[in-house]
């Protein structure tokens, strides 16, 4: 339960980070908040030769409101996004999801970009990003590129981020006028990874629903304004399409039932939240 040996680098700016990454390649891991990486190091699930600590990188802990989206820098913690004064107004989905993410004591260190980069299928932030249709800014010595969420996350714990790249920022689209947002999840204990998590956006002419915790990555669907049995049928078809599997936390059947029930509740809550 102690990490294997590694060299520790603490770069003074982003340029040095990218240099160190280019040099070490897949022998290196970036340490931001460490709330996922540190347990993996302690359990020796990963044994990098070099650890690059970016947690105190100057100037990268900023949240910028760019009108159409908020841009969250690579060292912004989940706690500082949660306490960003206009969060509930600008990105109501995040305001609902963040309190469910881990615990006060882990959000104080865990970063937003780190959660996106790790791409856990049950994690709240990748589900929010996928459902909102956000973007991920990747940076390496050869330049910067921006990928839509759907192209960034390629599967369970896998992303399009190259070995020499870092997630430099994440962009969450801001609330659309008149739209309603809702986020719900079921977990065995508050703060645990969700067995099933649902994000929903209700617009004047349709519903968008995102499901986490079942498939290998968040699954997003756009529907017209369904109601009653048409909504039940759509949720049932969605639940079956996710290829749910049995595991120690829940059976596949139970997960499908959660998708149907939580799905219905979350869509109702999003419709209710429309202005």
């Amino acid at each position: 339960m102690k990490p294997a040996l590694f060299d520790y680098l603490r770069p003074d700016d982003e340029e040095e980070v990218l240099e160190a990454l280019a040099e070490a390649g897949d022998d290196a891991r970036l340490l931001a908040g460490g709330q996922t990486l540190m347990p993996m190091l302690n359990m020796r699930l990963v044994e990098p030769a070099v650890l690059i600590d970016i947690s105190r990188l100057p100037g990268r802990a900023e949240i910028e409101d760019n009108g159409n989206f908020i841009e969250v820098g690579e060292t912004v913690t989940q706690a500082s996004l949660e306490s960003w004064p206009t969060l509930a107004e600008r990105t109501p989905l995040l305001a609902q999801a963040l309190p469910l993410l881990g615990h006060v004591q882990t959000r104080s260190r865990g970063t937003v970009c780190g959660s996106i980069a790790f791409a856990d299928p049950s994690a709240e932030l990748p589900l929010c990003l996928a459902t909102l249709g956000g973007e991920v800014v990747l940076r390496s010595r050869s330049g910067t590129r921006t990928l839509p969420a759907a192209e960034f996350q390629t599967g369970m714990l896998s992303t399009a981020c190259r070995e020499d790249e870092m997630v430099a920022a994440v962009r969450f689209p801001t609330a659309e006028p008149g739209a309603g947002y809702a986020f719900t999840e079921f977990a065995r204990r508050h703060g645990d990874f969700a067995v099933v998590a649902i994000a929903a956006i209700a617009r004047a002419n349709g519903i968008r629903i995102g499901v986490g915790g079942v498939a290998e990555q968040p699954v997003v669907r756009d529907w017209p304004l369904l109601a009653g049995s048409a909504l039940d049928d759509a949720l049932n078809a969605l639940a079956w399409s996710l290829d749910a599997a049995d595991d120690v936390h829940a059976s596949a059947r139970y997960r499908r039932e959660l998708v149907r029930r939580l799905g219905k509740q979350t869509v109702a809550a999003a419709l209710e939240a429309r202005l």
């Binding site: 460490g34 709330q35 540190m38 347990p39 359990m43 615990h103 004591q105 882990t106 104080s108």
Partner: peptide, 24 residues
């Protein structure tokens, strides 16, 4: 637990509550 779950090692780092087992 040494993986951030049990909370026994929680300390304050620059005022914020953090897991000492998830901090170098």
């Amino acid at each position: 637990c040494e993986h951030g779950v049990c909370g026994a090692c929680t300390v304050r780092l620059d005022g914020a509550p953090v897991r000492a087992c998830l901090t170098l």
